[in-house]
Amino acid sequence: MSYEKEDLKKRLKPIQFEVTQNNGTERPFENEYWNLMDEGIYVDIISGEPLFSSIEKFESNCGWPSFTKPLNEESLVEKFDTSFGMRRTEVRTKKSDSHLGHVFPDGPPPEGLRYCINSAALKFIPKNDLEKEGYGEYKKLFEK
């Protein structure tokens, strides 16, 4: 799969390209997954790499999907970000180098983290579609 910008421009919606490639941010409370609480996983819109689970998703009232931790910390890269006069920690994917959002130290216990992620950087795979979409190994997360 190509991660070249010209290929991505053809494959992604404009907001997906802006967020993932130009460090953009979608509008709060006006994005696809901010209030979705269905069971499933969230994958990188570019590479398909599994990033977050609905099990770790919580309502943070910030207007973007928020998670307490990633599925695999090794799949993310954190960078110090001083854009817009703020001091934040940016979160990017290691595999595709996509901008996802930011992580803040104001999340719920026990981790105390809030991964505030743009919906445009993600694709949601519902629990019932995990097998057919090639993510069958994640079904065990939802077994009680």
Score class of each variant (00 low, 15 high):
G63C: 06
G63L: 02
W64Q: 06
W64I: 01
P65S: 11
P65R: 04
S66Y: 03
S66A: 14
S66Q: 03
S66V: 05
F67P: 00
F67E: 04
F67L: 08
F67S: 04
T68F: 03
K69I: 03
K69A: 05
K69H: 11
K69C: 00
K69F: 02
P70Q: 07
P70M: 05
L71M: 08
N72S: 08
N72H: 08
E74W: 06
E74I: 08
E74D: 15
E74A: 15
S75E: 13
S75F: 06
K79N: 13
K79L: 14
K79A: 14
F80K: 13
D81V: 03
D81Q: 10
T82G: 00
T82N: 13
T82F: 06
S83D: 00
F84E: 13
F84S: 14
M86A: 09
R87A: 14
R87E: 15
R87K: 14
R87D: 14
R87N: 15
R88E: 06
R88N: 06
T89F: 05
T89R: 00
E90K: 10
E90Y: 05
E90C: 12
E90I: 06
E90G: 09
V91P: 03
V91T: 14
R92D: 02
R92S: 04
R92N: 07
T93V: 10
K94Y: 09
K94E: 15
K94S: 11
K94V: 12
K95E: 13
S96L: 10
S96G: 12
D97S: 12
D97T: 07
D97I: 07
D97P: 06
D97Q: 13
S98N: 07
S98V: 03
S98E: 03
H99L: 08
H99Q: 12
H99R: 05
L100D: 03
L100E: 04
G101S: 09
G101E: 01
V103C: 00
V103T: 05
V103L: 00
F104E: 07
F104G: 07
F104A: 02
P105L: 10
P105A: 13
D106S: 00
D106W: 06
D106L: 01
G107C: 08
G107E: 02
G107H: 02
P108M: 08
P108A: 09
P108W: 00
P108R: 01
P109L: 14
P110I: 10
P110N: 14
E111H: 13
E111R: 11
E111I: 11
G112K: 12
G112Y: 08
G112H: 09
L113Q: 09
L113R: 12
L113K: 12
R114S: 01
R114P: 02
R114Q: 01
R114V: 02
Y115M: 02
Y115W: 05
Y115N: 04
C116E: 00
C116Y: 01
C116M: 04
C116W: 05
C116H: 02
I117E: 01
I117Q: 04
N118G: 03
N118H: 09
N118L: 02
N118K: 09
N118P: 04
A120Q: 00
A120W: 06
A121V: 05
A121E: 01
K123E: 06
K123M: 07
F124P: 04
F124I: 11
F124L: 12
I125L: 09
I125S: 01
I125M: 11
I125F: 07
I125G: 05
I125C: 00
P126Y: 07
P126I: 15
N128G: 13
N128L: 11
N128M: 13
D129I: 11
